[in-house]
Design a protein around this nucleic acid. Structure first.
Lengths: 349, 349
DNA sequence: GGGTAAATTTAGATCGTTCTAAAAGCAAGG
DNA sequence: CCTTGCTTTTAGAACGATCTAAATTTACCC
């Protein structure tokens, strides 16, 4: 009784079958909790599973069943806390449903993005959650992932022939409304000369936020001077560097809606360097509500986007799509929520 | 000529073989770039691969070859920027070597940790990088991952019967030396009454940092009052809440070595609330060099741990182990690097 | 005990690859 | 034309699970 587990090789279902003198089929049924198998047989098999330390080989099962138990998560910048939170949310949901997360980070390079997707596809994920690198091309993405695997586009639109990707689901933030809320808030505080600071023309989220800003300004009958809309790379460093541009024209703004929190925090530093006190001498708002926003000096008025919730939502959406691949594609716009803190006080009298 | 690709099913090697009238074996050789196959045959096969849009099924290949092309990355807190950077570093290296990253986030729960490991093991990773949840038990972990799969323990020691896990590789930060450097720096600035603030007795990294602090104090012949060593949950919120404890005894400290940056930033807020100006009225240091440390007011003196480099290193280490499973286990201690900023000025005269 | 239905078990093909061992094709030399 | 040795191709059995269809056992009834 009780032949020992195999050495240097993993224990398989056949080992268990041999070990308690039943067929492989029976062991398989036990593993999947089938009601077909007799109580006593089940007990014997389960004992043997424990005894030999069996671990299920899901790859083999997936091969036979032509199924998949993984979801690919491809992010343009995992090191960014926004995406890290997002990833944590995705994994939280997937972990609970037996799916495993295949991670890929592209570091904002479209080239690496294609390579990463190609490599992940070889593992046959049931679906893909993609936050594309800036400048990703629809056609190229499509040829990398094929048309069989469901894909959820998160956070950014892709460029090129978007019609080719009609069948992809989408989850975006309500960028336009967010920027509009921020702008309206500054207007309500009494500001009239309001800038839009930072971000890249090329990015869809930047265009949307600018649109929301423009919309609010127009509704309030306020004009926008050309030097009030300033581009910069959306990080703190470049935000400091470009901040002088805001003060080039003859009418300097008294407030700015910033592309995101990183830019806003950079602008704060830039203001300090000009001898302006952010909050009291110049009002500003951010976007994202990163951890730092609550503790900056002054605390930053911003738009909360709850990335962890978005991650959970993205996971739910892709799972839904995996379950029903033929349903019509779905586009979701997630609400954002204005958090008023001290950085957006009224202008000086 | 040119039968169409199959519908609703993935293109397989057999489809290609049939499509250009060679055997499956030949196609397999072409895929792997074998020199055995004739130039013209290779060209024909490659054309057919493109034509049908073939994608390699690595799971099937792994099954046959009894190999694996994935590494599991299990983190106690993915949302923490430190680990997010770490993950980015890991993925950067793995992506370049054909391995894919299986992600698992445990949210600091040992229960979830065991579940996640169990689920990941079913996908047969070639190796595991684990940053354990606080309180993880060596025995339990061992029984979840078995003794076949190489594991690299990152950042924290596990509790319980550590001898059972002798064969695991380890990558730790030089916590003790880091805390010693910070303490010595404060001493060199002229401080004599220095506290150690924050962290949990239960965590190995906290014990090591305290040891480094104690070592430096002792070497300098400085005594440590009991109320100068204060525990708190290592986040900003609890750090604010517990900060009063530092000032209970009759000799209040003039400086503190903090468990990490989050705690230090919290303590800064706590100091403000007591009417003390961090940096000038009270010196402090952090640990980690999170993004915020460089831009806090005042900028925080801290220990840079370069988490992305650690991630790269962890990936290299586990790959090395996968290539040579029989080499003796290896323990690596990564250096940390003191960054002096404005928060650690000399005491008042 | 024989017959029938239900419960339980199983042999063997299969998923998409790789590997082994051998077969087939080809050129050159006798 | 037959060997010999090289290059190129291939049939068929793996890998570890599942599934189908059928076989076997058990239970029950007359």
């Amino acid at each position: 009784m009780g032949n020992t587990p195999p050495v240097g090789r993993k224990v398989t279902l056949s080992d268990i079958a041999a070990g308690c003198d039943v067929s492989r089929a029976t062991v398989s049924l036990v593993l999947r909790g089938s009601p077909l198998v007799n109580k006593h047989t089940r007990a014997r098999v389960e004992e043997e599973l424990r005894r030999q330390g069996y671990v299920y080989n899901r790859a083999a099962a997936n091969l036979r069943r032509r199924t998949s138990s993984s979801i690919a998560l491809v992010l343009n910048d995992l090191a960014n806390p926004f995406f890290a939170e997002f990833a944590a949310g995705v994994d939280e949901i997937l972990g609970g449903t037996g799916f495993v997360t295949l991670l890929g980070s592209t570091g904002e390079s479209t080239e690496r993005e294609l390579a990463v997707l190609g490599s992940l596809m070889e593992h046959g994920p049931a679906g893909i959650i993609l936050s594309p690198a800036e400048g990703s091309d629809a056609q190229q993405l499509l040829s990398a992932v094929g048309s069989q695997t469901p894909l959820l586009l998160f956070n950014r639109e892709v460029s090129g022939d978007v019609a080719a990707c009609d069948h992809w689901d989408r989850l975006f933030l309500d960028n336009q409304r967010g920027a509009r809320l921020a702008t309206e808030h500054l207007i309500a505080q009494g500001h009239k000369r309001i800038a839009f600071y930072g971000g890249h023309q090329g990015s869809s989220s930047c265009r949307q936020r600018r649109a929301g800003y423009a919309e609010a300004m127009q509704s309030a009958g306020l004009s926008v001077e050309t030097n009030w809309v300033v581009e910069c790379i959306p990080n703190r460093l470049d935000a400091v560097a470009q901040s002088d541009q805001l003060f080039q024209g003859k009418h300097a703004p008294t407030a700015a809606v910033c592309y995101n929190d990183a830019v806003a925090l950079g602008l704060m530093l830039g203001l300090h360097q000009r001898g302006l006190q952010p909050g009291s001498d110049f009002a500003l708002t951010g976007f994202d509500d990163i951890a730092e926003a609550a503790v900056s000096a002054p605390p930053l008025t911003t738009l909360a986007v709850t990335p962890r919730d978005r991650g959970r939502q993205a996971a739910e959406l892709i799972l839904q799509r995996v379950r029903d691949p033929s349903a019509p594609p779905h586009q979701t716009v997630a609400p954002v929520h204005l958090l008023v803190r001290d950085s957006s006080s009224p202008p000086h009298a």
